[in-house]
């Protein structure tokens, strides 16, 4: 049985300007200890998918219209609040993009580190602090005994992200959701944090969902990757299969537009047009208006993910028909 199984998740935002279908029928599953990368541009629904699982969607305007997210036998979207509270923050933890805004500036990090422990486990303050110290050591903060009493502003960006990771992992979760954890960091610090997540994942044997827009980050870290566009998964495959044999035109275009893979001096490959307007759903493929291979049928016929090789599915109708 998979650790997490999401089926037909639909999260819509009801605003004055219409209904935005941020996540529109997303299904995937995740095994214990597996690392799944979710890749997409801004507005593709990759963060909203995970926020829905974690119950972090502001309602209203957001609403989870349908779907289920079964974590180890419990449907997180339908179970009573006290049950989901006992899972979220303990067995599933999350780290965010901006470590400055996700730590409370008024509290010493010691208070913030032990909070999840004190809520989820019958543990004394003293014992919790000891665990927090061990955790700070594990994420590579030197002189932890002194620094545990610091405020967030006394740490640099990379150190704050380490504190965030320590806070997320202190309850020894089975699943860690990382929402662009290195986007706000410099490349040399990003390298440190990626190494850290890799090491801790092995130590704690966690499953990780890694949300990012950077295909480079995914290639070294993830076992499996799914590419999202316009609120839907357009391709999902093992990392090697996705990078070496991308099938969906969007994945191919995304790969081709990475500067480092292209010849210097020539024009960069670009995807024409702009991301879709999620408030105006189309019956067909949402990538069709920007797709070089689109035919009239692409705009009207609904698409669905279909398996095309072992552990490789994609949703392009023309690829499924063997036309490209």
């Amino acid at each position: 049985m998979p650790l997490l199984s999401v089926k037909d998740l639909r999260t819509y935002f009801h605003t004055r300007n219409g209904v935005y279908r941020a996540v529109d029928g997303v299904s995937f599953s995740l095994e214990r200890g597996e690392t799944l990368g979710i890749v997409g541009e801004s507005g593709s629904g990759k963060s909203v998918t995970c926020y829905s699982i974690m119950g972090l969607i502001p309602q209203p305007p957001g609403r989870i219209e349908s779907g289920s997210a079964v974590f180890d036998g419990t449907d997180l979207l339908r179970c009573p609040p006290e049950v989901s509270r006992s899972i979220r923050g303990k067995r599933i933890a999350m780290i965010f993009q901006d470590p400055m805004t996700s730590l409370n500036p008024y509290l010493r990090i010691s208070e913030q580190l032990i909070e999840p422990l004190r809520i989820h486990e019958p543990i004394s303050r003293k014992a919790a602090l000891d665990r927090a110290l061990l955790m700070l050591d594990a994420v590579g903060i030197n002189d932890a005994a002194k620094r545990i009493h610091y405020y967030p502003h006394e740490f640099s960006g990379g150190m704050r992200q380490r504190v965030m990771i320590a806070m997320a992992l202190i309850t020894q979760p089975e699943l860690l959701i990382a929402d662009e954890p290195t986007t706000a960091l410099d490349v040399t610090v990003q390298a440190q944090i990626l190494e850290l997540i890799k090491r801790l994942q092995k130590e704690f044997h966690m499953a990780v969902i890694f949300i990012t827009h950077d295909l480079g980050v995914v290639s070294g870290l993830c076992d499996r990757v799914q590419v999202m566009y316009g609120g839907k998964i357009v391709e999902t495959a093992s990392t090697r299969s996705l990078f070496y044999e991308p099938r969906h035109p969007y994945t191919r275009a995304l790969q081709q537009s990475i500067p480092s893979l292209q010849q210097k001096g020539g024009d960069l490959f670009t995807i024409p047009g702009m991301p879709p307007d999620l408030s105006k759903p189309t019956p067909g493929c949402s990538f069709a208006p920007r797709c070089l291979h689109a035919t009239d049928a692409c705009f009207v016929q609904p698409v669905e993910l279909k398996t095309c090789a072992s552990d490789h599915s994609q949703s392009c109708r023309r690829v499924q028909n063997g036309e490209i």
């Binding site: 990003q190 990392t239 070496y244 790969q255």
Partner: peptide, 14 residues
């Protein structure tokens, strides 16, 4: 160090 820190979009090399 800066060059080696850039993640490359190629799983085997990476």
């Amino acid at each position: 160090a800066l060059v080696s820190a850039i993640p490359t979009p190629n799983p085997d090399i990476e």
